[in-house]
């Protein structure tokens, strides 16, 4: 591959075709590994165990895979840009942008766009908790001498809250 990259000036048509092929495969792989889990892990869609395993595996690998692939992708794009005609340059830009977008998306948690996390949860004494109605329901945890109420209307938004109760680290989830 360094051979291809350093001697782009002497490229034959075969070299260019091969580079385009690698470029397209890389771009497609980046977009696929990022968008497949996004597509399958949707709230109102059924997930079979197999789809779930494949999707989560892709999601686990996508941050470093997309980064490595994007570096090669850009290298090929630069090589193809030089000596490329105007229409092939437009094609390069049109194809690089979604791949870079996917690389960025692999570093985002779109579930936390929908439901903002609560990284530093705050708590009130019972007397100050006027924001909870008497009929509102709470998830109630008591460990040792410490008792905590997680109002369900708050939990149904954040869904996941890390806490330590009575010295025990717990996660409250709804």
């Amino acid at each position: 591959m360094p051979n291809v990259l350093t001697r782009f000036s002497n490229w034959t048509t075969t070299h260019r075709k091969l580079s385009w092929l690698i470029f397209l495969v890389l771009g497609l792989a980046i977009v696929t590994i990022v968008l497949t889990p996004v597509f399958f892990i949707m709230p109102f869609k059924a997930q079979t165990p197999r789809i779930l395993q494949v999707s989560l595996t892709m999601r686990s690998w996508s941050p470093w895979f997309t980064l490595a692939a994007a570096v090669f992708l850009l290298a090929f794009a630069v090589a193809l840009w030089r000596g490329g005609r105007w229409w092939s340059r437009i094609a390069l830009v049109v194809l690089v942008l979604p791949a870079l977008g996917a690389t960025w998306l692999a570093r985002q948690n779109h579930f936390e766009w929908m439901f903002n996390p609560l990284p530093n949860p705050a708590y009130a004494k019972v007397a100050d908790a006027s924001y909870v109605d008497s009929e509102d329901r709470v998830l109630a945890v008591t460990i040792g001498a410490e008792s905590v109420a997680y109002p369900i209307r708050i939990m149904a938004y954040h869904h996941v809250v890390d806490d330590t109760v009575g010295g025990t680290p717990i996660v409250a989830t709804y």
Partner: peptide, 26 residues
């Protein structure tokens, strides 16, 4: 971890010394 799902009125009668998760102002 054992937990109950209770209405706030019952919980605060049973656990007046407890603490309650605050909402995020944003």
């Amino acid at each position: 971890v054992f937990h109950d799902e209770l209405s706030f009125a019952i919980w605060k009668r049973e656990k007046p010394e407890g603490r309650v998760l605050k909402p995020d102002d944003k």
